[in-house]
Amino acid sequence: MKVAVLRFPGSNCDQDAFFALTEDMGIDAAYVWHEETSLKGFDGVFVPGGFSYGDYLRCGAMASRSNVMQEVVRFAADGGPVLGACNGFQILCEAGLLPGALLLNEQQKFVCQDVFLKTETRRSPWTSEAADIVRIPIAHGEGRYVVEPEDLKRMEDRAQIAFRYVNASGTVDAESNPNGSVDGIAGVLNEAGNVLGLMPHPERATRTMLGGTDGKGILKGFELVMAK
């Protein structure tokens, strides 16, 4: 069982992801450069955060058209587990693996803080082991999730909303929404449930020393999907 941690020029959460997977989750992992054209030998894909290709044009736009992402699209279509955090989420949306897009935060500021998430569905391995209320760090300037109203309706009907920003007691409110995302959405699933994208960083919440361990419940999804 082995997870590919993708690396683009400008990725900066790749080492965190590798460390969290191998040291804290006991999952084998290896870096895969964006020019690679094969994911042979891998059972999962982690698309890490950062500023791939300098965020030129749009966040994730250039990365989503890279060699390795074309493989990730095929890998996901075959049911392989794919997780994108932060810039990784933006890349998955740009690649068309997830609905919607991420825009500049409503309050025009980069936000770096811990937030609370409510786990909204249990239908995917990505969310089946997550805590009801997840405490997890965010660090982004462009995390305002937007999607067309009719798509949002369809996503709700199909339980594709994975996580919403909430207050400590689990209520969605304007004060707990750090970036102006529609309906407080922090993470979404594809229809099949094997692809998850979220703005928060599960790889930065895998040991008490880092401030919390709630990220482990999400990263456990790699094992759960791969075991299927």
Binding site: L57, R58, A61, R65, C93, E94, P99, G100, A101, L103, V146, V147, E148
Partner: peptide, 9 residues
């Protein structure tokens, strides 16, 4: 359609 603009936004 392929790169320069994102039809979602």
């Amino acid at each position: 359609e392929k790169l320069l603009a994102n039809p979602v936004i």
